[in-house]
Amino acid sequence: MTFGLQLFQFILSGLTTGSTYALIAIGFSLIHNATGIVNFAQGEFVMLGGMFMITFHSLLKLPMLPSFFLTVLSVAAIGLLLEFGPIRRAKSKEILILVMITIGASISIKGLSMILFGKNPMTLPPFSGETPLILFGAAIMPQSIWIFGITVSIVLALNYFLKKTTTGKAMRAVAASRRSAMLTGIPVDRMILLSFTFSGALGAVAGMIITPITTTSYDVGAILGLKGFSAAILGGYGSMPGAVIGGLLLGVFESLGAGLISSEYKDAVAFLILLTILFLKPSGIMGKGRLRRV
């Protein structure tokens, strides 16, 4: 295999995992925009996505499509409950306290999952076979095409929702100014609930599409969450296009790092990028840097 072809192969596989990071990063951004907090349970949503899909599809033998939607609904419901329960009922609404609550939720979800699903790594069959397609001499797994396709559709649908529907515009309004949104009559609580629900659904999808490639176990949430978080920072925290660009770039860097240096350092690459961005341009690629009034 020529070096050029190898590079092409790495980039393709990087874009595949990068798509999942993008979905996770969007989940982070949605919640951040509505509430200003970092949801550390985001990675657990991804883990739950894989686990529920395995439960519905592999254990309960439900067909692929119903399992897919049941999983999305279940994890979305968990996102909703996280907001409706502990977050909403917290006595103090301080950011740090709310972030601590999400960390607590993350630990609880991980613990419960260990008891429910056991400690063994599990996997899902790919959505449609394992015969690789050959594109310009590089091999692409059909699952990668599913991952791209699903990610692109979700990004487009979400973009349509946020730009064209009144509820979507109201969500952006809450992100722009919570105070002004309240004074306009927008039910801010409901928008926050919606952002948690969406983040749950996005996490579920990310978990389902990546599990056939990477396998899953009860403890993958933390690392996936951190990857998505790094992607969000890289792209500019809170920015939707930033989340997509950050996710894809992170995936590619990681894959190049693994392929050209050593796969042992795959995770280190993500954190090296995170640190570099924090040192050099903390607002990220699409970040504007906060304007201050003098």
Binding site: R172, A173, R179
Partner: peptide
Amino acid sequence: PEAEKVFNPLTLLENLELGAY
């Protein structure tokens, strides 16, 4: 309000539309 009167990243039309939310 005196500060944060409008939704800065949203267009004028979007601001007006949300006024009738």
